[in-house]
């Protein structure tokens, strides 16, 4: 757990970068610090490994005040990933990854074998080991950056805009892999980004900062989307937050109508009971626009109901057989009931 206790950072010249920040970043979870530029999120991150020294207040990692520890020793126990990766241009990929184990006194042989394992883990084949950073694409460099931060297996990782220098397609892939990696490793991670979508997608917890180094809200992505504390947060998370908040609930509890026909439209099945499409008034078969299972999100069901030619989303089982139908207005009723239930829970 990383704890900020009433932390203030005032730069010489009087500008306040971080203003009385208190928050707790839970162990084994990823907390994303997000906000507009100049909101103090990067300064806050850098105070954790003492790259920036707070003016007042304390930062503790698992109850130990970081200010009492030797800087270099503290930092070797904290993984660090930055934008553009910041790799050492004069070292091969393998030796870049081996950096921290070497600093910790491992032999070159041990450090390199640990590094080799890490490269594989982040999806880089052995052929990359001997290359220099300049021979890699941005996405590959970023993977090496992550591997380098993980090489000494630190319990805590700091990531400063790690994915913002790569193009959206590559970023998407890095996100997926990183989430998978984090699922295995369960590191305590603090990550900075200016991209709220990235924060909501990757964060277990999200800290929204506003200008002047104030923490505007700290909560789960779902809390931010459903209960923003003020207009700033509501604006920042975006106008479609209602729809996006549906990503966090599955369709497991959503009631379905039996498979059949209504309003003159009939769901046509193949011999195995899998949906082929809709037929209206005996015309040609129109495709269903997709199907969902109970594991899919309410957002996906909503999307299917909207894009379906007849306004009905089709649920299938694991075997692909049609199990039930959800009509537009069934969905609206369900969401209204869900909203009322949530409100009751909150006031209770």
């Amino acid at each position: 757990m990383i704890t900020f206790e009433d932390v203030v950072k005032v730069y010489p010249g009087g500008s306040t970068a971080v203003d009385h920040l208190s928050m707790e970043l839970p162990t084994g979870k990823m907390t994303v610090l997000v906000g507009p530029s100049g909101c103090g999120k990067t300064t806050s991150l850098r105070m954790i490994n003492r790259m920036v020294i707070p003016t007042s207040g304390r930062i503790l990692i698992d109850g130990k005040d970081v200010s009492g520890q030797d800087e270099a020793v503290l930092r070797r126990g904290i993984g660090y990933v930055i934008q553009h990766a910041g790799l050492f241009p004069h070292r091969t990929v393998l030796d870049n990854v081996a950096t921290v184990p070497l600093l910790l006194g491992k032999t070159r042989r041990e450090a390199r074998s640990a590094a080799m394992e890490l490269l594989e883990r982040v999806g880089l084949s052995a052929e990359f080991a001997k290359r220099y950073p300049a021979q890699l694409s941005g996405g590959q460099q970023q993977r090496v950056g992550v591997a380098r931060a993980l090489a000494a297996d630190p319990p805590v990782m700091l990531m400063d805009e790690p994915f913002s220098a790569v193009d959206p397609v590559v970023r998407e892939g890095l996100h997926r892999e990183f989430l998978r990696l984090q699922q295995d490793l369960g590191k305590t991670i603090a990550m900075v980004t200016h991209d709220i979508d990235e924060a909501i997608k990757l964060g277990d917890m999200v800290a929204v900062f506003r200008q002047g180094g104030h923490l505007a809200q700290f909560g789960t992505p779902q809390e931010l989307l459903e209960q923003p504390v003020d207009d700033f947060v509501a604006e920042f998370v975006g106008r479609d937050r209602g729809l996006r908040s549906l990503s966090f609930d599955t369709a497991a509890d959503l009631p379905v109508q039996p498979v059949g026909s209504f309003d003159g439209a009939e769901l046509v099945l193949d011999d195995a009971g899998r949906p082929l499409g809709w037929r209206r008034d005996g015309g040609t078969i129109e495709p269903t626009a997709g199907v969902f299972t109970t594991g899919d999100s309410l957002r996906m069901v909503t999307d299917l109901a909207i894009t379906s030619p007849v306004g009905v989303a089709v649920r299938v089982g694991a075997d692909g057989k049609a199990e039930g139908l959800v009509r537009h207005h069934d969905l609206v009723d369900f969401l209204a009931a869900r909203r009322d239930r949530r409100a009751a829970e909150r006031s209770a």
Binding site: G86, H90, L103
Partner: peptide, 27 residues
């Protein structure tokens, strides 16, 4: 500076950083 900062953040002390990172890159 990104390179020196990332070296510092990884736990290099000043002198070792000079010989391991800065001088080789400046070579």
């Amino acid at each position: 500076p990104v390179i020196t900062q990332s070296a510092t953040a990884m736990g290099y002390r000043r002198l070792r950083r000079l010989f391991d990172v800065e001088l080789p890159v400046a070579l």
